[in-house]
């Protein structure tokens, strides 16, 4: 069991130098860079639009954490299932969802991935096996294990990847689920997107056990700390955990250390952390890192790089255009998608 201990999660994991013996291909780096850049730009635009009050609701950005979804997406297989909490904009993008339907969901339009009924916190896209987008902290941990339960029941060999923030680790649902997931050896990988802050409350202020990878030990769940600023490290950890799950050996807990550059939500004044801390983490930016690897290996010309950057910009712009030109749902849509039964007798009053 590879559990390392460390005190406070800091930016101490040094910026990884380009490794010439890297097992990852040119195509993988280019995909990581392209996907993470798309997520970053989508989220930056989302933040701007939110400030301009183009749409309402809560808005939790993924900026800084992109390497986790990039490394997971490259390491998983097509039949695998994915679920997360409410910081959910990046996961479907990494899995291949068209950003247009995601932007339309933020805008509450009929063309949104959840028909404008879920909003920022409840993205779903069955086509890429993205099973939400869940608003109640920790609820997805149990549901994600249930998704894995069905895969095991049907002997598919597929794995469920369930993400959570470091705050969710303190929910009872996690402990109940970990116990059953280990007992039944469910094919599930629990991913803590550990950005060290549950809203404004740091890990140190919520627990005596600040090393979250130790949480799995009570259930003898294989657990490890992973550098969440490195898509390479995430990919390797996810691959190892997924292999374990596919072999029938059950779940893994990955404490993936990352950082959100922005506040918890758009209304967060961020008084709980220093500018220096934020900058230390930004210094390890995974998007910058991937581009460095690409440049050093001369895998793309400056022209090709520019083309991708332009494409990303265009994708984001078009997603906004698509959303703004899409209709809002009509009132009668309220009565759709509540029950599978087509003729449910709703009570209709004044």
């Amino acid at each position: 069991m590879a559990v390392k201990t460390s005190k406070k999660p800091t930016a101490a994991t040094k910026k990884s130098k380009v490794d010439s013996t890297s097992k990852f291909s040119k195509e993988t780096y280019i995909k990581w860079w392209k996907d993470m850049l798309l997520i970053r730009k989508f989220e930056e635009k989302t933040g701007q639009l939110y400030i301009q009050q183009k749409f309402g609701g809560f808005c939790h950005l993924y900026i800084g954490q992109e390497a986790i979804v990039a490394g997971t997406a490259s390491a998983c297989k097509p039949g695998d299932k994915h679920m997360t909490a409410y910081r959910d904009h990046a996961h479907p993008i990494a899995l291949g969802t068209d950003p247009r339907v995601l932007m339309a969901e933020l805008y509450g339009r009929t063309t949104g991935c959840s028909k404008g009924k879920g909003g920022s916190m409840h993205f779903f896209d069955k086509k890429v096996n993205f099973m939400g987008g869940h608003g109640i902290v920790g609820a997805q941990i149990a549901m994600g294990a249930g998704v894995a339960f069905a895969e095991k029941y049907n002997e598919t060999g597929n794995v469920a990847f369930v993400s959570m923030g470091d705050g969710a680790v303190r929910q009872g649902a996690l402990h109940e689920t970990f116990n059953m997931a280990m007992m039944w050896k469910l094919p599930v990988v629990f991913i803590i997107e550990n950005n060290n802050y549950a809203m404004g409350t740091s890990v140190e202020r919520t627990t005596n056990v600040t090393d979250l990878s130790k949480i799995g030990l009570s259930y003898e769940m294989p657990s490890r700390i992973v550098n969440g600023m490195s898509p390479e490290a995430v990919h390797e950890a996810i691959e190892e955990a997924a292999d374990r799950a596919r072999r029938g050996d059950g779940p893994t807990l990955l404490d993936i250390r990352t950082y959100r550059y922005k506040g918890h939500s758009m209304s967060d004044p961020q008084k709980y952390r220093t500018k220096q801390e934020v900058e230390e983490w930004m210094d390890q930016d995974p998007i910058v890192h991937c581009l460095e690897v690409i440049k050093e290996n001369k895998w793309m010309t400056d022209k090709e790089i520019k083309e991708v950057e332009d494409w990303v910009k265009k994708e984001v712009e078009e997603s906004v255009e698509f959303a703004e030109n899409s209709p809002y749902p009509e009132g009668k849509e309220l009565y759709e998608d509540i029950y599978q039964e087509p003729n449910y007798p709703y009570i209709v009053e004044y």
């Binding site: 294990a145 009872g172 109940e176 059953m180």
Partner: peptide
């Protein structure tokens, strides 16, 4: 573990069972 196994049931039902 009512919360846990109810949640596992919900997830299983979302995934075809």
């Amino acid at each position: 573990a009512e919360l846990g196994f109810a949640g596992i049931g919900v997830g299983a039902s979302m995934n075809g069972l």
